[in-house]
Design a protein around this nucleic acid. Structure first.
Lengths: 211, 211, 211, 211
DNA sequence: CATGAATGAGAATTCATTCAT
DNA sequence: TATGAATGAATTCTCATTCAT
């Protein structure tokens, strides 16, 4: 009934500060490498306040990741916006491939991917949820496209989900897998590299699935 | 002067026991989740002995991973053994693709991949070394093949390293990326799945790079 | 000047709510096992309000117990109501013995006894006050009876306080001491057990003190 | 195979020191009021050592109490030694009653009784075990006597267990129950009081159960 | 040399109590 | 006046590492 319960209330603001601090530290130092003290300090709140909002460290981590996943889901995924009603399929696929690669290769997402892979044994639900909300969601979108394009005779796609995954990983795998093993800073792509990997992926994809 | 310096000496045997215990625990519970006490206990040696062989925990981890990497390097990589002097390229590539996928999708390797990705920020050299000894080594081997096959007119490969990576990730990406986000047990492939992913990868690859 | 000073005022009502919550929790989880947060939450008031009414935790505990003791004292003790003007002494003593045993063996009283015994070192005044208001008060009442009955020739009681205590503990000891060591639920008496212990106590008592 | 494994070894000595320190502090300040730090300090060992011997605080408490109970059980209970082959039953019962009362009214046992009653909700097994090893064991011994004495015609005891409990509590209840509510120091009995309560108990008992 | 013990610190979590809004 | 936040310390437990026997 009070401002405190609205989105911008004091309470909500503190909660937000905690989440932001937690994200920063977890992504930077990992789950085990981050202490609740550090989080409270960075959020500029007392430890008590952290514990009033999040029952324990695991829950804080879980809620943080879940929150971020929900953000992504809530936002209209860039890829969803338009389906390629295309006259030049190759050009259009290149555009989407580049955009997709750029989306995925952002530093925070790379760090999140790392931490979730690293903690997948301890937080299996989280890793699963992330995979469902990220990669698998992309597959489904791609599969929808390719099915439509197949109906329009622009592609020959017998198994849309398979084609979707081939497309996805052709675009992402080379830089993404390297990024998993190298410091983030060395992994960010130049415009040139980005275009290169995207375009080559499209080339291979169309060779296999082009009409 | 002593048996201790030989391969099977008491000292070497203990060192081996420690490494084995450490591997088991690190892979299972992660770096932070494994204590030196646990390792000593599982190796059935005193903590003192652990510290005599490995100056500290980081070094133990590093040496363990380095050792395992060296093992892999030392062993003739399965893929290296023969170069496909082939009359039926597709059949041969399928064979290699299946073998490669089976090699990579072993539980211990998946766990190692996870832990190295998770700790890449804390152990950048290790992650790098692993990537060089694993994936990049595979790329180089594939690239060598494809270059040769191109010279023999069996493939058309302008950029062998690119083709090698495309091939590699076409084969591995779908199950491997899923395995990173799911419990290991749910990630092991049946014979059928393995063949499916390998064969489909070869199909796409040949569509793009076949002569 | 305000309703707050009356018995049913808002303030008094809150005070009552706090006391009730505190009793529930202290009896259930002990003194150390109960937090001021829990009490405030169960009473549905803010912690500030708790601290306005009770300076600190010790005082809250003390006042609660004191309050409950006063309640008991204020109420006409069941035993006081009538003095056995008796024609059948054994029958009358049985009645009182049964009533007494039933009074004492109520779950909340057993829990209170436990907690006061457990905290007797930390709250000696409380334990003393409870003992004075409960057991010792009973002794005095019994002693009064027995003295009168002795004067009437119905009993032979040289030391009324001693006889009173013998009577009291003959009635209570067996089930009460067991209840102190067993979960409350297993300690509640059936009608049959209650009558048995009461009647046997009366039998022994009369054998020793009967005229 | 080493002295360390014998009773007087270093390890055993430390374990003993920890138990002794724990007993002292638990009995004095209660379970919640005693910290593991305090115990380690009083035992003059490191906290580590405490935790290596006892997995956690609960277990330390449990093992301590269990150990003490076992001590009592192991020792030939004073009462067991001789069965009263008596020519003067009253005199003999007085002797045993006095001895029993003196046994029970020792300061450490009173404190232990208190703490076990106070923690009975949190450690039900312990309270039960203590009750079985202490009071109930006494009942059984007394019951055995009385049964034999009944057979010899020296008592008339229809229900030996009931008589045993009547005897037990007639002897103990008055000072023991008071001791539960008062500081230990005020509860220790003078020789005179001890004899008084014991003798009066025997008097009542014999009035009810004498042949 | 190898075992138990010690060190010294740090982490998670909880609590009683007080401040500020 | 009442609520959330803050304080500041305590507690349980763990760990990596080193000493002493």
């Amino acid at each position: 009934m009070e401002a405190a319960h609205e989105d911008g209330g004091r309470t909500a603001r503190k909660r937000r500060a905690i989440i932001d601090a937690a994200r920063t530290l977890f992504l930077q130092h990992g789950y085990a490498g981050t202490s609740m003290d550090d989080i409270a300090a960075l959020a500029a709140v007392s430890k008590q306040t952290v514990y009033k909002h999040f029952a324990d460290k695991q829950r804080l981590f879980t809620e943080l990741i879940t929150f971020d996943i929900a953000q992504v889901k809530g936002s209209s995924h860039p890829l969803v916006t338009e389906m390629p009603y295309t006259e030049d399929l190759e050009r259009d696929l290149r555009i989407y491939a580049r955009r997709h690669l750029a989306d995925v290769m952002q530093a925070p997402l790379l760090q999140m991917r790392r931490i979730l892979i690293g903690e997948a044994d301890r937080f299996p639900e989280l890793a699963r949820a992330w995979y469902a909300s990220g990669p698998e969601r992309g597959f489904a979108i791609f599969a929808g496209w390719f099915e439509a394009l197949d109906r329009r005779g622009l592609l020959r796609v017998a198994d849309p989900m398979l084609a979707a995954q081939h497309f996805n990983w052709l675009v992402l795998s080379i830089p993404l897998n390297k990024a998993m093993a190298y410091p983030i800073k060395e992994s960010l792509l130049s415009e040139r590299e980005l275009e290169f990997y995207a375009d080559e992926a499209v080339r291979v994809f169309l060779a296999a699935y082009g009409a």
